[in-house]
Amino acid sequence: MEPASRVFYTLVTLASLLALGWGAFSAGAPGVSFALFAILTLGGGLMCIWERSVVRSAFSLMATFLGVAGLFLLLGADFLAMAQVLIYVGGILALILFGVMLSPPDLNERSLPRVLGGLAFAGGAAIWLGLRISASVTWATAEELPPMTSHAEEIGVGFLSPEQYVVPFELAAVLLTVALVAAVYIARRRSIDLFPEEDA
């Protein structure tokens, strides 16, 4: 491993341990699970932008998707969490990997000013946003949260009842179908233009 990566991953590991300890100290078992999923999400994201190989970046996205699914689960959104894993990990990530798997790694040197500038910008934005949010939101503690229940039936009824979301739901379905048909149409046209001799 190159020295810059060694420093980067040491810092990430230290920050993760700090977050775990802080979660355990401040909120016990729920704090630990939140810290774990947050570390997965942020660590995957950081690794995704740090790694020079596109495929490694794509694989690290899996940690992010799983972490987000875990956070949904902690919020009581079980359907959303499983849909996140099924669609993003099973479908979209597989497609991304299919697309980038044969691309070579980027062997250019990392430039130190750009890395430091990016870190400074991200850190500043995180501190500013954190201060703004913590000033305006009152958080519920773990004891005040409602018990975990499944919301699948609620979601189904909401999507299919005429009083609620059936029209936007169907419109979204029509939009996706149009996009799908259009994609197939464009792909077909291009292949005919590229190989005109095949028409004969």
């Binding site: 099924l86 990990v89 099973g90």
Partner: peptide, 13 residues
């Protein structure tokens, strides 16, 4: 509750 959905999600991984 969402057993089948969970199975599909996990086995897709």
């Amino acid at each position: 509750d969402l057993g089948l959905f969970f199975i599909l999600a996990m086995s897709s991984m």
